[in-house]
Design a protein around this nucleic acid. Structure first.
Lengths: 132, 132
DNA sequence: CTGTATCCTCTCTGATACTG
DNA sequence: CAGTATCAGAGAGGATACAG
């Protein structure tokens, strides 16, 4: 999980404010995780309430066990998702959003809403583009 | 032309259902383009105003010519970015946001803002995670 | 039930070189 | 200046089998 190497010349000052436009800003990988294919959907789904692994997998249609597991691990590591394990047989794990995760998920939800509400515009643009 | 006024409640109309959670929803690939590594940064950068190719490339630090070109093509195809060519030597191409692109970019901007403002929380979570 | 391990495929990505 | 072409490596993603 190493970030790309940096020369002294391009090194951003770690102490200054986070600027995602900077090549090696620490916020970039986090943004990627959040905006990733399954990260986005998982976060927005959890906005609906707590989910168990299998239920979340059904909600996020098409995700494999492997990718959902991996995605949730990353989101948990970044402090966006909380993972509650209830030791028992069969195992029971519940995923919830942290306060920060909720903030982020709400923005993603708005983004998705804008997109879904304007899919006809998008489709029209795509059709026009392909005619040229 | 279908009107898609959702002024009332979230219409659960079976006719126009754009549910990004569904495996084959057409909005999924669009979301991926928008939320892609360079798509996000390009859109938010264009929120600052029109950009020419090279200037945008300098703004989005780290992007290669190839990826920026590819990203902008996709965003243009989806109707989020407008590409204005001025035939001349040397060539001059200006990129601007469409109304929909502006809507989307604003949401992305808010998302990035939340993330940047809470990077200390994220870093703390990462540190805690790695201690376990 | 909730994952992890393995293997394999395919897309994304970047460096380089070249065109109008 | 604004790209496109090509190549090759890295990483995302999926299917399956297996473990706790």
């Amino acid at each position: 999980m190493d970030i790309q190497q940096t020369t002294a010349a391009e090194d951003a000052d770690p102490g200054l404010e986070a600027d995602v436009f900077a090549r090696n800003c620490t916020s970039r990988p986090v943004l990627q995780n959040v905006a990733s294919r399954w990260g986005t959907l998982a976060l927005v789904a959890l906005l609906e309430g707590p989910y168990r692994f299998s239920a979340l997998r059904r909600r996020v249609d098409g995700v494999s066990e492997r990718m959902l597991s991996q995605t949730l691990q990353t989101l948990e590591r970044d402090g966006l998702v909380h993972r509650e394990v209830q030791q028992a047989i069969p195992p029971h794990v519940e995923y919830t959003l942290t306060p920060l995760g909720t903030e982020v998920a709400q923005r993603l939800g708005e983004l998705i809403h804008v997109l879904e509400a304007n899919m006809d515009t998008v489709r029209a643009a795509q059709a026009a583009y392909h005619r040229d």
